[in-house]
Design a protein around this nucleic acid. Structure first.
Ligand SMILES: [Mn+2]
Ligand SMILES: [Mn+2]
Ligand SMILES: [Zn+2]
Ligand SMILES: [Zn+2]
Lengths: 150, 150
DNA sequence: CTTAAGTTGAAACCCAGTTGCAATAGATTA
DNA sequence: TAATCTATTGCAACTGGGTTTCAACTTAAG
């Protein structure tokens, strides 16, 4: 069952519309999936979720929409240490960047915001005269639980 | 022409041998390539270089050796923002971690060591009780030259 | 030298992501 | 509202980076 077009646009959607991009039914669906995701989703998961709202949607449209969102800086692409396969994960770009920690034993992903991280980016921009558009800090290791139960 | 086996072993090589791993001719060749690389190389580049020393070497052996080195923490795997294709790049793990900056316009890769980065990792280990095994900070943006000539 | 386990190359395979193209659907204009 | 123009879509074929399988071959130990 297609989404009603009366649906209130989310932030991603209004962001794209304000940039003069065509708002298609498929895009609206994919944006909704990304916007309401509770964890980091890969392209296949996004496709599956999107198909529950609009069964006709094709995976190529998911990939195209993800690149569009990436190009516009509205989502971030993550590797999450490529713990199984080479796929990438996506999340709405947050107001403030965060770090991703991937446990190499249990696979759990944790997030962490840090003032030190913000300062580090500031240092890079100043000392390297490098204008940062996107940044990704991912660490792999062992979480507290996995270290305990060992 | 195969490398003479009298060749003095590099750090990677002696590290692997000290861990009781079999030192084959192919591994020696690949280790030499990685060890003497002047830039970040992807698997295909490593294969090409290795074949110049030992033409019979197969790409599957390159991939297997790279995973071996990764598993032993002797090399780091980088995305470098996946600026063309989905390939990965490799470098010998340095004594001190560094940050990679990829210019989205000219493609240049710069490296940067920072005390703030070391402190940030310390903070993560302490405050998140997360034992870091590997860390990767990559930023994409615009280098000084590209910002000037625009 | 013999032996046993680890490693190799070749070929087939896998999977995430991309490309080409004709049909379709947004947005704009009249 | 209808015509128009152009961006977007779905499908199918394709690409590229990396992996699996397995028989033949090395390596290191004894
Ligand atoms: Mn990657
Ligand atoms: Mn996140
Ligand atoms: Zn864990
Ligand atoms: Zn540049």
């Amino acid at each position: 069952m297609p989404l009603p077009q009366t649906e209130a646009p989310g932030r991603l959607q209004s962001e794209l519309m304000s940039r003069g991009l065509r708002m298609t039914h498929q895009r609206r669906t994919i944006l909704t999936v990304v916007e309401t995701a509770k964890q980091h989703l890969d392209a296949a998961q996004i496709l599956r979720q999107a198909r529950r709202l609009d069964p006709g949607i094709d995976r190529v449209t998911v990939y195209r929409t993800l690149s569009l969102l990436k190009r516009h800086g509205l989502i971030d692409e993550l590797d999450l240490m490529h713990m199984q396969g080479e796929k990438h994960f996506y999340e709405r770009r947050p107001q403030r960047d965060h770090i991703h920690m991937a446990c190499l034993r249990c696979g759990k992903i944790a997030e962490f915001e840090s003032d030190l991280f913000d300062r580090l980016k500031g240092q890079i921009q100043r000392e390297c005269r490098f204008h940062i558009v996107v940044s990704r800090l991912e660490v792999g290791g062992y979480c507290a639980e996995c270290r305990a139960s060992n």
